[in-house]
Design a protein around this nucleic acid. Structure first.
Lengths: 220, 220
DNA sequence: GCAAAAGTGTTTTCAATACACCCATGG
DNA sequence: CCATGGGTGTATTGAAAACACTTTTGC
């Protein structure tokens, strides 16, 4: 019979940022059983009178406040046994934000409860959320080939060596420094801000920004 | 309060084939109100103990029998007012099949109830299904750039002029006949079957097939 | 002045584009 | 033999790839 055991619907948020050329994801520490002490994606049961998209936004506002994340839906996970003794279907969202905004507002976030993890150094993850995270990292990989997407992570300045690291890390490829630079400049995608990166070893790198005109060109 | 008005979940099937270089979608005629006489995507309320993927497959088997469609999930539609007086969330699937198989098994399908429509000549569509169909046509467009995807529509033979029509129609571009041929052959994507198309006006076209090795290269 | 990291220029290779003529079939 | 549509070759252009040396900074 339909819905004898109540089927529940929830949304889950995969919020990513990039620091030092590497992807990080925001996770929430579970304070109760099951999976107490494990980390999980922020999730919220669907409210009656709102869309999945709005439910997801509300989830984040309630949990960590009013950030300007840029969300999009990726997949709805519905395996019967994804959560034991319950039937919960979970629609996944990817959110993106630049690291500078994060650093500015980091104090809004309770460090014990929410924490950023490099995707290569994930902690113990609750439920099937590791599978969900990996699925969404795959989606980011697809998107990152389209240069436009990186703007979400670098609305202001970046150096070319750092941007190159992003491509190399996420796409698992090696790129020649000179050709990478040439490609981005020839594609009319980026512009020199006139400023330079200070600190650190060696020659300071120039700071670039993405141009406005961006017409959805593919790199690689 | 959560779920005071029962939230229902359904799956909808967007089954596409290609005939004469143009996309067609399979629709079901509604026999009852609301939207009696309109056409709709095959849909099915989610059963308790199966995944959305299995629910979608079951929907098709029950409605039109055991075809070998190749399904994948695209998006979950959840606008509060997408269906009046009810709250129904709908997860969308794209299914693909080649036209030859369709023609062979066409007698399995009740012509009054189910019919193929060219996407440029859609009939009156029930609910928000036209929006859903258009969303999924967009997904196909994205996928078709990856050559591998076309294999689903052409598991056996095809002519290059026809394949070119597909690209031109779906991507809304014009391609030079000679360069198109060169590109596909240089990419090692297709091979000559040695046979020719008969009938029709003019010189018969060679029949090609997709090679097995296909390593996910992008055309255009 | 040395180590560290960033920046630059040239040559070669290969794919993309543009373009005009010939070929196989049906009637 | 003519109309219709399919098949082929070449020259040009431009981007991708491969590669080594110079420049700026901190210490």
């Amino acid at each position: 019979m339909q819905n004898r055991l109540q089927i529940k619907i929830e949304t889950n948020s995969n919020i990513f940022t990039i620091e030092k050329g590497q992807l990080k994801v925001l996770l929430e520490k579970r304070k109760n059983e099951p999976f107490k002490g494990y980390w999980a994606l922020p999730t919220k049961l669907l409210e009656e009178n709102i869309s999945l998209e709005d439910n997801n936004k509300k989830c984040i506002i309630e949990k960590i406040g009013n950030f300007d994340f840029n969300f999009f839906q990726t997949h709805t996970f519905s395996d019967v046994d994804r959560i034991i003794d319950q039937r919960v279907i979970s629609t996944s969202f990817i959110g993106t934000i630049d690291n500078i905004t994060i650093n500015l507002k980091q104090d809004q976030i309770d460090e014990d409860e929410y924490k950023w993890f490099y995707i290569n150094q994930l902690p113990k993850i609750a439920y099937d959320h590791e599978k969900i995270i990996n699925f969404n990292i795959g989606k980011i990989k697809e998107k990152i080939i389209n240069s436009d997407f990186l703007k979400r992570f670098y609305p202001s300045d970046f150096t070319l060596p750092e941007l190159q690291l992003v491509y190399e890390d996420i796409l698992k490829i090696e790129i020649d420094r000179r050709n990478f630079r040439k490609k981005l400049i020839n594609m009319d995608m980026i512009e020199d801000t006139g400023y330079k990166n200070d600190g650190g070893n060696g020659r300071p790198a120039k700071l670039y920004r993405f141009k406005e005109n961006n017409t959805q060109k593919n790199l690689f």
